Structure formats: C-alpha cells, structure tokens
Amino acid sequence: MSQPFLIGEAMTGGYGGGADILHGCTIAVERGEIAVIVGPNGAGKSTAMKALFGMLDLRAGEVRLDGVSLGATSPQERVARGMGFVPQTHNIFTSMSVEENLEMGAFLRRDDIARTIAQVYELFPILGDKRHQPAGELSGGQRQQVAVGRALMTQPRVLMLDEPTAGVSPIVMDELFDRIIEVARTGISILMVEQNARQALEIADRGYVLVQGANAHTGTGAELLADPDVRRSFLGG
C-alpha cells in the first residue's frame, strides 16, 4: 500500500511537560498536492504543523517523509531531508536586503544558488525589483513573499506555510494563493495552515478540519466546502 509523501500519523503531544494539545491527529500530503489545515482558534493547527517539523516532542504517533520515519530528528535535519517551513511571524531578517534573506535560506547548500534565486524572482517579480532593499521596509505581503522565497532556497520537497496570508489584504491573499498553486505545479508538496478557510479550501486538493487537537473532518477541498456541517460550523453557513 502506498504511503503519503509526508504524514504525521496519530500524533499526540504538546509543549514541554504541558498538557497534550494534539490528540491522535493525522495530517498527510501527497507529492505536488496542496493540503490545508483549518479550524477554530486554539484547535491545534499550528501545533500540528510544528509537530511535523520536529518542533515539539510527540508522546504518541509518528512522522514519516517519503516512507522513512523521522523519529526525533531536529528541524535542521528535516530541512536537510527536504522540508521547508515558513512560520507565521518573525520569518524574515528585517535589516538584511531581500537578496541577503534569500541567500540565508540556502545556508545548507554547497552548490551554485544563482539559478534558484532567479526562479524566486520569476515567481515573485517584485522581489527582483527590490532585491537590494532592506526586507523590513517591504509591505506585509512582500515580506511574506520573501519568507516563502527564502524557504524555496532550500529546494524543499515539501513546503509548510503557517498562516501565509495573515494580516494581508484580500488582493494580496489571492496573489499569494496563485503563487502557492504555481509552486505546487512544480511538484513541491504544500501543507498550509490557514484562517481564511473558504479561500484556502478552494485551492486545496486535501483539507483537514481540526477541533481541539483532533481530526473533525477530512476530505478534498471541494468535499469540505460542500459539507453542511463544515459550512455551518467553520465557513459561516
């Protein structure tokens, strides 16, 4: 039986010695697929993402990438294995230029990074225009583009985005989602936590609705959008 490219299976855990936040939660994404995690505030969405990336200890369950268990490997080791992670906040170096931020994203690489930088500028043309400008001077949407671009510099096989559209205008949100679709078309798996549930599910191949750290609903984006329970509880009817 084939396995998903990335899966956190039956994950239970929390931070440090605190109470469990995740309760048997399962999240998976296939190659080149967009998977979205949605749910109410405090549902454990970002915690599930961090568990996949090795940022908290699981008390039960397992994370596997391309069929291989990641065990207790560190986030740095997971980057080396092909996982890119963009946190919701503090995700750029504000005093560095756009291009310096991208170069920092390639810290594990020993090959020529010029082609990847060119690909990022092709994906986000505004960053090419502002490559020498301090990243801290950019708009919120442009900062998010820098953060995503920096993660792409690691040449990830799966890109994990925690609230990529938080605090941006609807127009910028639509643009970011368009770019995320373009990234997925290159074969990179996308796993995304989103508060804008309806818009995220519209572009999702697979969706997960979490409630209190557990799976409440799972299906394709279209299935979840059409589910009366999901619509009533999480999409405003």
Results as ranks from 00 to 15, higher is better:
Met1Ala: 13
Ser2Val: 14
Gln3Pro: 00
Pro4Lys: 02
Leu6Asp: 04
Glu9Val: 02
Met11Cys: 12
Gly14Cys: 13
Gly17Cys: 02
Gly18Asn: 14
Ile21Asn: 09
Thr26Ala: 03
Gly32Cys: 10
Ile34Asn: 04
Ile34Gly: 05
Gly39Gln: 15
Gly39Trp: 01
Gly39Ser: 15
Asn41Tyr: 08
Gly44Cys: 09
Ala48Gly: 03
Ala48Ser: 15
Lys50Val: 13
Ala51Asn: 15
Ala51Arg: 02
Leu52Gly: 04
Gly54Glu: 07
Leu70Ala: 06
Gly71Ser: 01
Ala72Ser: 13
Ala72Val: 11
Gln76Thr: 10
Gln76Tyr: 11
Val79Leu: 06
Met96Arg: 10
Glu103Gln: 02
Asp111Phe: 09
Asp112Val: 03
Asp112Gly: 03
Ile113Gly: 06
Ile113Trp: 11
Arg115Val: 14
Ile117Asn: 00
Ala118Trp: 08
Phe124Glu: 07
Lys130Gly: 01
Arg131Trp: 00
Arg131Val: 07
Gln133Ile: 09
Leu138Gly: 09
Leu138Asp: 01
Gly140Thr: 10
Gly141His: 13
Gly141Pro: 13
Gln142Val: 14
Gly149Ala: 10
Gly149Gln: 04
Gly149Cys: 07
Met160Thr: 12
Met160Ala: 02
Leu161Tyr: 04
Asp162His: 01
Asp162Cys: 06
Glu163Lys: 08
Glu163Pro: 03
Ala166Gly: 11
Gly167His: 09
Gly167Ser: 07
Pro170Met: 10
Ile171Thr: 12
Leu176Ser: 11
Asp178Arg: 05
Ile180Tyr: 01
Ile181Cys: 13
Val183Cys: 03
Ala184Trp: 05
Thr186Gln: 13
Gly187Leu: 07
Ser189Asp: 11
Ser189Pro: 03
Ser189Tyr: 03
Val193Pro: 02
Glu202Ser: 07
Ile203Gln: 09
Asp205Tyr: 06
Tyr208Ile: 06
Val211Pro: 00
Asn215Trp: 13
Thr218Pro: 00
Gly219Met: 11
Ala222Lys: 05
Asp227Asn: 08
Asp227Ser: 11
Asp229Lys: 15
Asp229Cys: 00
Val230Gln: 03
Phe234Gly: 04
Gly236Ala: 03
